[in-house]
């Protein structure tokens, strides 16, 4: 049986892992390769590295980091943050990333999604969608959640599938950082309406939240950052709990 996936997300700044809540009070949390290794030991199914580096010089160093990760890590990993062109993608894929994730650039230039899928295959294109519920409607935001696009989330998700994305990473801005649980309503809606895998993101605060999102939606994976970073949940314990609750996960 295909397993539901648990995906820790690491925020990277200038080649180091950083921890913080909503990009505020960032503090250094070590070498991403070391952090990744620990997650692999705990049984993570995939990893996501999001680069939040500001300067172009440090962005170039990202490829070097990706090479180190690829040399060390024996599970699939996705790299994202600031990808704007097919050349950005080529650099990361040749450095060893299995998948890349794009967000704002996909909204501004939907052809980019098709172009990446055409050159590197759909399986490597994860489109991140940041969505917020307001005025009775789920809509899409870009630029780290600062800019509304007016796009309806369901419409954009369907379009992204048509454009050739292999997977959607759906982050609920209403839940992100709250630790009050994933937004199961929009996750259920999107995951049952499209035919590519959906990664639920935003709001994980307890093991029950993972059970709820897997139980109530057709999402293929659930992603979280802080609860894994701060050691609040060990992935081994989480998977044991999910398994006891009849959610099919990979036990190592």
């Amino acid at each position: 049986m295909l397993k539901r996936r648990i995906i820790p997300c690491l925020d990277i700044k200038d080649g180091r892992t950083v921890k913080g809540v909503n990009f505020i009070n960032l503090r250094d949390a070590g070498d991403p390769v070391e952090n990744a290794r620990e997650y692999v030991r705990q049984g993570a199914d995939e990893l996501v590295f999001l680069d939040i580096t500001a300067t172009i010089e440090n962005r170039k160093a990202l490829a070097g980091l990706v090479e180190r990760i690829a040399a060390e890590i024996n599970i699939p990993f996705t790299v994202g943050g600031g990808i704007n062109t097919i050349e950005d993608v080529r650099v990361l894929i040749s450095a060893g990333a299995d998948k890349i994730t794009i967000n704002s650039s996909g909204v501004r230039n939907p052809d980019l999604i098709t172009e990446i899928a055409g050159q590197f295959g759909s399986q490597c294109v994860v489109v991140a969608i940041d969505t917020r519920f307001a005025d009775d409607e789920w809509t899409v935001f870009v630029d780290g959640g600062r800019t509304p696009t007016g796009l309806k989330t369901m419409d954009w998700a369907r379009k992204v599938e048509d454009l050739g994305a292999g997977e959607i990473m759906l982050t609920s801005m209403n839940s992100d950082g709250t630790k009050a649980g994933f937004s199961t309503d929009i996750t259920a809606l999107v995951s049952s309406s499209i035919n590519i895998p959906v990664i639920a993101s935003g709001g994980a605060g307890s093991m029950e939240h993972f059970r709820d999102v897997f139980f109530n939606t057709a999402c293929s994976a659930a992603l979280a950052a802080s609860i894994f970073h701060f050691g609040e949940i060990d992935i081994r314990d989480l998977k044991k709990y999910l398994s006891e609750n009849n959610i099919s996960v990979r036990i190592t």
Partner: peptide
């Protein structure tokens, strides 16, 4: 869902 993506026994 297609692709079949993830861990399977």
């Amino acid at each position: 869902k297609i692709p079949h993506m993830g861990w399977n026994n």
